[in-house]
Amino acid sequence: MTRSKRAFLFLFVLMAVFFLINTPMVWKWMYPIKYEKEILEASSRYQVDPYLILAVIRSESGFQPDRVSKKGAIGLMQVMPETAEWIVEQANLQPSGENYLYDPVMNIHIGTWYLSFLEKRYEGDPVKMIAAYNAGPGKVSSWLAKEQWNGKRETIEDIPFGETRLYVQRVLYYHDRYQNIYSNMLE
């Protein structure tokens, strides 16, 4: 094969890949929705953006309900057992069994209730909510009070914890992706 034919073939393959990637089918394959019914139910019940729930689940567990973090967070939304106990009491939930954090339905309800709690605490500001979901509301409130971070999306790089900074960026990225791909499908 001549050099010009290889170059043409390479260019053709690149163009084909570009056009394939920009199809809705490929985007939906890259950003799947799992547990759609459960997410929509929790979203409606606790008035939380379903795309945010999807983004948190994708960031936290990659949709793996049996995921356990090094720190001990469990399930799809990676909820710490102590936080889950507090939420179960506050939200008057009725989990069945002691391994309820592994149950996708219960885990989604617990995590979504917590996002709703954080949404109220931070007056609907998703950036602060996401940061607090990762670092805890005490840390985020402290950063805001000490003016270490102003809580805005434009200043995420000022978040004092690198893990939280990357987490917020990742969740916002996934949120925007899911919203663009599935716009109006989940609402």
Score class of each variant (00 low, 15 high):
Gly151Phe: 10
Thr155Gly: 01
Lys139Asn: 15
Asp176Leu: 04
Ala145Ile: 01
Pro137Glu: 15
Pro160Ser: 05
Tyr178Gln: 09
Glu163His: 09
Ser141His: 07
Arg153Lys: 14
Trp149Ala: 10
Asn150Gly: 03
Gly136Arg: 12
Arg165Cys: 02
Pro160Ile: 02
Glu147Asp: 13
Lys128Asn: 13
Glu157Pro: 01
Pro160Arg: 11
Arg165Leu: 03
Tyr133Ile: 00
Arg165Ile: 01
Val140Ala: 09
Ala132Gly: 07
Tyr173Phe: 15
Tyr167His: 12
Phe161Leu: 15
Ile159Cys: 11
Ala135Thr: 04
His175Thr: 03
Met129Glu: 06
Ala135Val: 04
Asp176Phe: 03
Asp176Lys: 06
Tyr133Asn: 00
Gln169Ile: 07
Glu154His: 01
Asn134Trp: 09
Lys128Pro: 08
Asp158Phe: 04
Tyr174Asp: 06
Glu147Thr: 07
Phe161Trp: 15
Glu154Lys: 10
Ala135Pro: 08
Ser142Trp: 05
Arg170Ser: 09
Ile159Ser: 11
Asn134Ser: 07
Trp143Ala: 11
Gln169Leu: 07
Val140Phe: 05
Pro137Tyr: 14
Ile159Pro: 11
Thr164Asp: 05
Val140Met: 03
Glu147Tyr: 04
Asn150Arg: 10
Leu144Lys: 08
Gln148Thr: 01
Pro137Thr: 04
Glu147Pro: 02
Ala135Gln: 09
Gln169Ser: 15
Leu166Thr: 07
Gln169Lys: 12
Val168Ile: 05
Ser142Val: 00
Arg177Cys: 08
Val140Ile: 05
Ile159Asn: 05
Trp143Val: 01
Thr164Lys: 13
Glu157Gln: 12
Tyr133Gln: 01
Arg165Gln: 14
Thr155Leu: 08
Glu154Ser: 12
Ala132Arg: 06
Tyr173Ile: 00
Val171Arg: 03
Ser142Glu: 15
Thr155Glu: 15
Gly151Val: 02
Trp149Gln: 06
Lys128Leu: 11
Gly162Gln: 14
Ala132Lys: 13
